[in-house]
């Protein structure tokens, strides 16, 4: 499955190259904080900016979804398999439910699974990578071999296997996706730690008697925030893709929950009668994952991160 692949930067767009040369002319005098410099770069990175705006819009939909959905997602008193119309912009499904409302509610599920899974993978994978990179020797061997093992299973196969054992449902699906993507974070953090461990500032901190915990927390981790943010952005998108895949296979979150993957599962069965059930949920997934990929890609250019994974 994996995939630590340094994807090619798209040149011509990236202003990052000049970052080291000196402050661009339009910067105010004085030293801008790291945060404001970051926003300045981000705004120039068209891809990241477009991605961010789209993500923000979708996040708003996810949060206020139930309030703005025209109908209750489970209300089934409409015509069955009605094509898109003004009353039902995305048509109705085979139970006579409004597809548009279900897609809106589905946004929340997708984002929840994606974000929680990515966060869990980040924390656990990051911790493993940090310990492996920092302590080296047998700790590294042990953790690295375990990570190699996870890597030997394609993500979807691993997630399917875990769901097969522990059962479907929101918690288990999220957990399975988190485990499947954990090795990416572990690899990145381990590699970064190996480099940072030998830096002068780390050695100085150690010479001054700082504890291991302090060195890791104050000197090593803060220096790898950039690649982790980029990786986490991709991971949320991949998590959403994986969730929809598992749900499509019937191994996802609760079958009563309106989700994009579930709608597609039904769309497959009614592909001859109702094209809209297949088309719209898929477009929702593509739009969401593409926004995250655009943002991650632009962010990678803006932060000048190398060697972050892009994978299946």
């Amino acid at each position: 499955m994996a995939r630590v692949v340094s994807a090619p930067a798209v040149e011509g767009v990236s202003p990052v190259g000049q970052a080291g040369v000196g402050p661009p002319a339009d910067l105010p005098v004085g030293s801008p904080s790291g945060g404001s410099r970051f926003w300045r770069r981000l705004r120039r990175e068209r891809k990241a900016f477009v991605g961010l705006v789209l993500i923000a819009l979708l996040a708003v939909v996810a949060v206020i979804g139930p309030a703005v959905a025209p109908h209750h997602p489970d209300a089934d008193d409409f015509g069955i398999l009605e094509p898109p119309s003004l009353a039902h912009p995305m048509g109705t499904d085979s139970f006579g439910r409004d597809l548009f409302s279900r897609m809106i509610i589905g946004t929340r599920v997708s984002f929840s699974v994606g974000i929680v899974a990515a966060a869990a993978a980040l924390v656990v994978g990051g911790l493993l990578g940090l310990l492996a990179g920092y302590y080296g020797r047998w700790v590294d061997s042990l953790i690295s071999r375990a990570i190699d093992l996870l890597w030997a299973f394609p993500v979807i196969i691993l997630a399917v296997g875990l769901v097969a054992v522990f059962g479907a449902g929101f918690r288990n699906v999220t957990l399975a996706i988190a485990v499947a993507y954990l090795d990416d974070f572990a690899r990145i953090v381990r590699a970064e730690t190996l480099g940072l461990r030998e830096q002068d500032f780390t050695l100085a901190a150690r010479a001054l008697g700082a504890t291991d915990r302090r060195i890791m927390g104050r000197h090593i981790l803060p220096n790898m925030v950039a690649p982790l943010i980029v990786q986490a952005t991709f991971a949320v998108g991949l998590g959403i893709l994986s969730e929809s895949t598992l749900t499509f296979l019937g191994l996802g979150v609760n079958p009563a929950t309106p989700t994009w993957g579930l709608a597609l599962n039904e769309g497959r069965d009614f592909v001859r009668q109702a094209w809209w059930i297949s088309v719209f949920p898929g477009l929702a997934i593509v739009l969401t994952v593409m926004s995250l990929n655009l943002f991650g890609d632009g962010l990678r250019d803006a932060l000048d991160v190398k060697g972050v994974a892009e994978r299946a």
Binding site: L241, G267, S278, V279, G282, I285, V289, N293
Partner: peptide, 18 residues
């Protein structure tokens, strides 16, 4: 390419059938 990377293969399959 961006769309291709962001698209679930099973969905594209359904669209191709359609």
């Amino acid at each position: 390419a961006f769309v291709g990377v962001s698209m679930p293969s099973f969905w594209f399959g359904i669209i191709l059938i359609l």
